[in-house]
Simulated assay, not measured.
Amino acid sequence: MSEQKRRPLPHDFHPPVPSFAVVSDDVALGGKLKDDQVYAGGNVSPELRWDGFPPETKSFAVTCFDPDAPTGSGFWHWVLFDIPTTVTELPTGAGSGDMKGLPEGAVHVRNDYGTRDFGGAAPPPGDGSHRYVFTVYAVDQEKLGPDADATPAVVGFHLRFHALARAQLIGEYEAPAAG
């Protein structure tokens, strides 16, 4: 996918907020996603850890979004919120499978695959490199408001008004053209 075709990131439309740090042993900034983070390769959510968020943070939210999906509206791969402030790391696989390592009280909403978990990268073959934007939000309230039946858009609406700060990590993945 050429630079000209790349779409804005979801929080480009939100008011500016301070940033903080998010890192991962599974996702290298600007690097290719690992095979197990691909839909057909295992669907395993990456390890994420963060620090430097505002002291008034009351909870966190984590999302993964592909703005380059050929949908006109991007593609939500992961939406998780109401993560307690005592949790500043999600281990590999916390958002997939048996949800081991997922903090108690955290809420998953359906991703664009229709499941309440992490859905790995799956760009159409030959569509070029897609960006997978992992964002951690520092939230100004313990409970964001929506429940598990909300859509990613509703969660994004709430995050627009309740994000104190944001951290982002972008990995990329490309499925080669068939034959």
Rank of each mutant, 00 (worst) to 15 (best):
R166C: 06
V22H: 03
H162F: 08
A94L: 04
D140M: 06
H158A: 13
S73N: 13
G31Q: 13
G179T: 10
L159T: 02
V133R: 11
V139L: 06
V139G: 03
T86S: 12
T115F: 15
D68A: 14
P103V: 03
H130Y: 02
S2M: 03
F13E: 13
L9D: 15
G95P: 04
A94T: 04
A21Q: 11
R160L: 05
V44C: 01
S19Y: 01
E56T: 14
A122H: 15
H77K: 11
P46L: 04
F75G: 00
V79C: 14
E172R: 13
A106R: 06
P146Q: 10
I83K: 01
K34H: 07
I170M: 11
K143G: 04
V139Q: 03
D25A: 14
V23F: 10
S73D: 12
R110F: 00
P54D: 02
T151W: 01
L169V: 00
E89Y: 05
P10N: 06
L169S: 00
G97N: 13
R7K: 15
L33D: 01
H11T: 14
T88N: 09
A28C: 06
F20V: 10
H158T: 06
A94V: 05
D149P: 00
E3N: 03
V109E: 08
A163S: 15
T86G: 02
E89P: 00
T92D: 04
D149F: 00
E172T: 14
R7E: 13
V22A: 07
E142T: 14
T135W: 10
E56R: 14
E56A: 15
T115W: 13
C64K: 00
G171C: 08
E174H: 09
P54L: 01
V87S: 01
S129G: 07
H130L: 07
A106H: 09
T115K: 15
A138P: 09
V79Y: 01
K5L: 15
R110M: 06
P125E: 02
N111G: 03
V44K: 03
F20M: 08
S45V: 08
D26T: 12
Q37I: 04
R116V: 01
D35T: 10
A106E: 04
A150G: 12
A69F: 13
D25I: 09
F118N: 02
F134P: 01
T86K: 05
F118L: 05
L159D: 00
E89M: 14
V133S: 10
E172S: 02
R131G: 02
F134N: 10
F161Y: 13
A106W: 05
D127I: 06
A178D: 04
L169M: 00
S45E: 07
L102M: 13
P123I: 09
A150Q: 11
G72Y: 06
Q4A: 15
Q141G: 10
F118T: 01
G128R: 07
S59R: 05
D25T: 14
A138Q: 12
D66Y: 06
T71L: 09
P91Q: 03
T57H: 11
Y113N: 11
F65I: 05
V17R: 15
H108C: 12
K58I: 05
T63Y: 00
D68Y: 05
T88A: 01
P15Q: 15
P46M: 10
G171P: 03
R7G: 09
T63Q: 03
Q141D: 05
G74P: 04
N111T: 00
P146C: 11
R116M: 10
T92V: 12
D98T: 13
D147G: 12
A61P: 02
T57K: 11
A163N: 07
P84S: 11
